[in-house]
Design a protein around this nucleic acid. Structure first.
Lengths: 338, 338
DNA sequence: CTGTTAGCGCCTTCAG
DNA sequence: CTGAAGGCGCTAACAG
């Protein structure tokens, strides 16, 4: 709103030219000791602050990076964001946090706006397969990093969990303890990415020669409420041995539904979740068998990869993929022992 | 990085002047139907996108608002952020999310950077009492809204919970069920704000003619780990009847400590938390007696107040304060019945 | 309805 | 070591 002092004001006050002040501030080029002192004074007296907007117009760098996630308040997202923020702040970047709601439309809208705002880098958990907008990001030379999911055909760095293998392991565990009818609860949003968790699940069934029953593959919007409702619907038809939720948000819905219907875990039905509930996971009952995945580390690592690209540390090399395997936690929700 | 087409390119291609294109895009002023068509074509062919930076330099508006919180991954923060994002997106604003770590230094650093970046508004949960930087925010005409906490002497809007009253009610409940030695666990960060929760606690003790024992007032950094450690330390001295954590983050530490030491809740000691664990609160065991506070609504409301200020809806009126009372949930962690 | 002029605040380039 | 000129992409304020 209000105009602050600018370089010219400082220059006048210090009795030098604008350029000298600019050099002083950015430490580019030599400035006489005495002149420096006068400039420093003028800056302090006027409470001068450089105008980052004007600087950005010139340099084409904003010092902002964007993070687009499906649900910024999910247990995993919040930890990832915190990791990303940690690295960004340290490197002098600010974070534009965007919640796509797993909506392709909202994602596109955000991409559009962000292109206009000239971000220096982007971390994206895509919820669509459209390549156009992303290609434009790359064309503009904006470093892009996929987190959690990726879009085929877009050469960009990637950090994620070991979805398929961890899912295979988890499903195998359910099979090992005697389950035959294992319902898997997937996000609709993952359909476009051919859910790697579903692949791991399928592979595990195959390994155990259990035929895949399409009726056990459930899809719903990524919310606890939707998980609840789709379980309600599915349970009307038949009761599975076990329910495997591909995310803790969905697992919450399952737990609530079971609680409301007095379905006992694990006596009546086992429950497992692909990932944990994050920071408060250990306090939740029943304790879910799940993969403990390092979401904070994922954020850190992702941000570091991105920073590296931004600073031109590794220009034009092949996209790098970093996968964080989870740790399988076997807990009461799948204990068959009585 | 890469320069895209600009207004001049579009203008040339459409055979008109730069200003006409500008008018067309911003829908300011009249543009001939036929001319409009040609411009629209040119824009499409060139894949033109307005440069928000340049626009900002001119208009002094960036379309960005900043949110500074102590811990962006706390259950309450994530919900508030989601609410804020919801409103901001709708109104065409982007969100710069800043995690201050409850550090005055980091907060100051962020304020400094944000001043240079020219945000259109700021939502702040302050963790210091320094007025200088905030006065500068106001002086620059940047709408400021305090969330959760506020700084004395800075006239700005505020949204928060009903800390003192809800705290009074919660403490009174603990007294009602027979507790005499009630330990209260506060954030160090709240010292500068004269923790309203502590005030409510003190008032409740007074009402019941229970003398305040300084040894029952515990302070620690706002993290679950710190809560754990300070409990460990305090318990060495004496065992209270009840522990009242002023935030769920601290309550988590208490729960973990009690679990590790096999201290039973509520048989050996009652536990209560000022606020809930947010989205997954109902799944946590033991279920904590706490205030259910509407964090999402807080975010919505805060963002709306801010938007209103930004758009000049209510210029220069008195600061507005909106307080959201919580709903007291009496749960197993304070049931004395056997 | 359209164009011209003059910046927004800063940095790059080239002369001193 | 310092300064002057020019422009980044856009828009406000006037002219036509």
């Amino acid at each position: 709103m209000v105009r602050g002092p600018n370089l010219r004001d400082v220059a006048q006050r210090a009795g030098v030219s604008v350029m000298t002040v600019s050099r002083f501030i950015n430490q580019s080029g030599y400035v006489n000791k005495e002149t420096s002192r006068r400039i420093a004074n003028a800056i302090k007296e006027l409470q001068y602050r450089p105008n980052q907007i004007a600087k950005s117009l010139q340099t084409m760098k904003t010092g902002n990076i964007a993070v687009l996630l499906g649900n910024v308040s999910s247990p995993m997202s919040t930890l990832a964001i915190k990791g990303i923020e940690h690295v960004s702040f340290q490197k002098g970047y600010n974070l534009l946090v965007c919640n796509t709601d797993f909506s392709e439309e909202k994602e596109q809208k955000y991409l559009d706006i962000l292109m206009q705002k000239q971000i220096d880098g982007m971390i994206l958990a895509p919820c669509s397969n459209r390549r156009e907008s992303l290609q434009e990001v790359l064309d503009r030379g904006i470093p892009l990093l996929f987190l959690d999911r990726r879009v085929q055909g877009i050469p960009a760095d990637y950090v994620g969990f070991d979805f398929e293998n961890d899912s295979f392991r988890l499903t195998s565990h359910l099979i090992d303890v005697g389950c035959k009818k294992i319902a898997i609860l997937c996000r609709e949003a993952d359909i476009v990415h051919e859910s790697p968790q579903l692949k791991g699940y399928t592979r595990a069934l195959e390994s155990a020669s259990i035929p895949l029953d399409e009726k056990n593959v459930l899809y719903c919007h990524s919310s606890s409420k939707a998980g609840y409702e789709v379980m309600e619907e599915a349970m009307k038809r038949c009761m599975p041995d076990a329910v495997y939720a591909t995310s803790s948000v969905l697992a919450a819905g399952v737990l609530r539904f079971f609680r409301d219907k007095a379905i006992r875990i694990p006596e009546d039905c086992l429950v497992a979740s692909f990932d944990s509930f994050g920071e408060y996971d250990d306090l939740i009952r029943p304790n879910l068998t799940c993969n403990e995945v390092p979401a904070f580390a994922l954020g850190i690592s992702g941000a570091e990869l991105l920073m590296d690209r931004i600073s031109g540390g590794t220009p034009d090399t092949e996209p790098r993929h970093v996968v964080f395997p989870g740790k399988l936690l076997l807990r009461e929700s799948t204990w068959r022992g009585r």
